[in-house]
Structures are given as structure tokens and as C-alpha cells.
């Protein structure tokens, strides 16, 4: 069966598109799928660094499009997880170096060899987004529980719908369960109410993300943090498995001692 092509996008920058792409790609590979993560952010590439493969990049997908090299030469094989590949972006070119038609052709060329093609989309709604979205059938929209990110997600969802992408599913990233509990953060249902699209997962705020980026190792490879489990669940849901949402509140300690601590916290906040 040819690959499912999924664009990972958000509109707003800095909400975790690249981190999500890397972790979902690695998780899918761990489940035995053959996966290629394509960095569609031409000129500002970062997926190679997040995946820890920056030293092994020789060619990029613009080279493939311009026939400077063969597709197989540009693909970087991740030696840590079987079946995981990166197709890097060009760093010294601009988004104008490709057009949507070329992206569609590139995806068609990749399709027979993979189960999943994940396209890491640049921020914004201009050419870069249109290129990345062109080749995709499905979409994952990443947002954080903040007004600007949800607003931009709404815009992007509208554009993806008009392009006929389906299904379009939402990842809520960097949620802080304790802030939601205190009523100081948009909750999962608040966001789903206004966006009215299907949720595929909620990823809690997690210091492990920074450590993983420092180490160049997607969290789903080592699985030692809450965010890693959330991404693993997202990958399972992509595979069609019915996995219940994580009980994020269990990550906020709720014992008697922490209740006392919380009381003091409230007091200090008040005065």
C-alpha cells in the first residue's frame, strides 16, 4: 500500500511542529512502520537538528527536485530506529525554490517505498505552507493552549479544509495540567469547542523536550517522559488504535501534602 502523506502544521511558529514531527515519526517507526520525515521548511531547516541527524546530511530535497542527486542519496537513514528516514530541506535556498507541483511529484516518488510520509511545514500561510500542504492527504494541526496559537490554528484549519485535506486532526501541545486545574489555562474542551475538529492527542508541557532537543534524540526513542508517552499515543491513534487520552492530572501531584503546599502557594500568590 502506498504511504499515507500527512502534513504537520500550525500557522503560528514555535508551537512544536518540528518536535511533533520528529517524535511521531520515530514512534511510528518503533511500531514497525517505514517512515520518512520531510523537512519542508526550506531556508530555515531544523528537523535534522531535532532528530540529531545534522551531521549526516549531504543532499536535500531541492537537490532531488533539481535532479542534482537521486532520491536515495538525499534520504538520511536513522541508525537508532529501523525504518526511520529524514529528507532534509535546503538551508541556503528560499521557499521559492520549490512549487506545489514539485512537492506533489516528490511525495509520489516517495510513496511506494514508505508507510508514512510526514511533512514538517514552515510557520505562516504563504508559499511554504502551500508547498508542504500540496503533497499531503491528511493533516495534523499543532496548537498550544493560548489565544494566538488557537486563532492561527483556526485559520490554518479553514485553509486545509478548502484544500480538501482529510482527516484534519488537532494536537494540543504544551498543556500544563496544574494551570488548567487552577483555571488559569485554556482547557482541552475549551479549545475543541471553538475549533470543532477531532483531537488526536494532548501533549503535556515537559522539560524532557528541551533535554531531547539538546541531545538530538526524539523522546519517543527513549520514552522516559510524559510528552514521550503522549506522542507514542498519537502515533498509535494514527495507526487506527483506540488509545484512551492520558490522565494528565495524575502528573500533577494531588496528595494531602501537595494540597497543603498548594494552599500556601495560593496564599503567597494572593499577598
Amino acid at each position: 500500500m502506498p504511504a499515507r502523506v500527512i502534513v504537520v502544521t500550525s500557522g503560528k511558529g514555535g508551537v512544536g511542529k518540528t518536535t511533533s514531527t520528529a517524535n511521531i515519526a520515530a514512534a511510528l517507526a518503533k511500531f514497525g512502520k517505514k517512515v520518512v520525515a520531510v523537512d519542508a521548511d526550506v531556508g530555515l531547516r531544523n528537523l535534522d537538528v531535532i532528530m540529531g541527524l545534522e551531521n549526516r546530511v549531504v543532499f536535500n530535497f531541492i537537490d532531488v527536485i533539481e535532479k542534482t542527486c537521486k532520491l536515495s542519496q538525499a534520504l538520511v537513514k536513522d541508525k537508532r530506529v529501523p525504518g526511520l528516514y529524514l529528507l532534509p530541506a535546503a538551508q541556503t535556498r528560499t521557499k521559492d525554490a520549490v512549487n506545489p507541483q514539485q512537492m506533489i511529484e516528490l511525495c509520489e516518488e516517495l510513496k511506494p517505498d514508505f508507510d508514512f510520509i510526514l511533512l514538517d511545514c514552515p510557520a505562516g500561510i504563504e508559499g511554504g505552507f502551500k508547498n508542504a500542504a500540496a503533497g499531503a492527504d491528511e493533516a495534523l494541526v499543532v496548537t498550544t493552549p493560548e489565544i494566538p496559537a488557537v486563532r492561527d490554528a483556526d485559520r490554518i484549519i479553514g485553509m486545509l479544509e478548502s484544500m480538501g485535506k482529510s482527516p484534519i486532526r488537532l494536537i494540543i501541545n504544551r498543556l500544563r495540567p496544574n494551570m488548567v486545574q487552577d483555571g488559569d489555562m485554556l482547557a482541552k474542551d475549551d479549545i475543541l469547542d471553538v475549533l470543532s475538529i477531532d483531537l488526536i492527542g494532548v501533549v503535556p508541557e515537559d522539560e524532557g523536550v528541551i533535554r531531547a532537543t539538546n541531545n538530538g534524540e526524539p523522546m519517543t526513542m527513549t520514552l522516559d517522559s510524559p510528552a514521550a508517552h503522549a506522542y507514542l499515543n498519537i502515533a498509535e491513534r494514527l495507526l487506527g488504535n483506540d488509545v484512551p487520552l492520558m490522565d494528565l492530572e495524575s502528573y500533577t501531584s494531588r496528595g494531602f501534602f501537595s494540597w497543603i503546599k498548594k494552599l500556601f502557594k495560593r496564599r503567597t500568590r494572593q499577598y
Binding site: 493560548e146 489565544i147 488557537v150 486563532r151 483556526d154 485559520r155 479553514g158 494551570m179 488548567v180 487552577d182 483555571g183 488559569d184 489555562m185 485554556l186 482547557a187 475549551d190 471553538v194 494552599l263 495560593r266 496564599r267 494572593q270
Partner: peptide
């Protein structure tokens, strides 16, 4: 009330209201 967390309208509710209005206008 604030001490025990009841009836404490956090900034989350305000965010939800503002978001809803922004989206009505955007759409």
C-alpha cells in the same frame, strides 16, 4: 473562597471568552 479555590475565575475563562470573540470576527 480564593483560599479554597472555589469560585475563583482564573484567567483561563477570560482567555476562552476573548478567543471566542476573536474567532467570530476572524471567520
Amino acid at each position: 473562597r480564593k483560599l479554597f479555590g472555589g469560585g475563583n475565575d482564573g484567567s483561563g475563562a477570560k482567555a476562552k471568552d476573548r478567543l471566542r470573540i476573536v474567532l467570530i470576527h476572524d471567520r
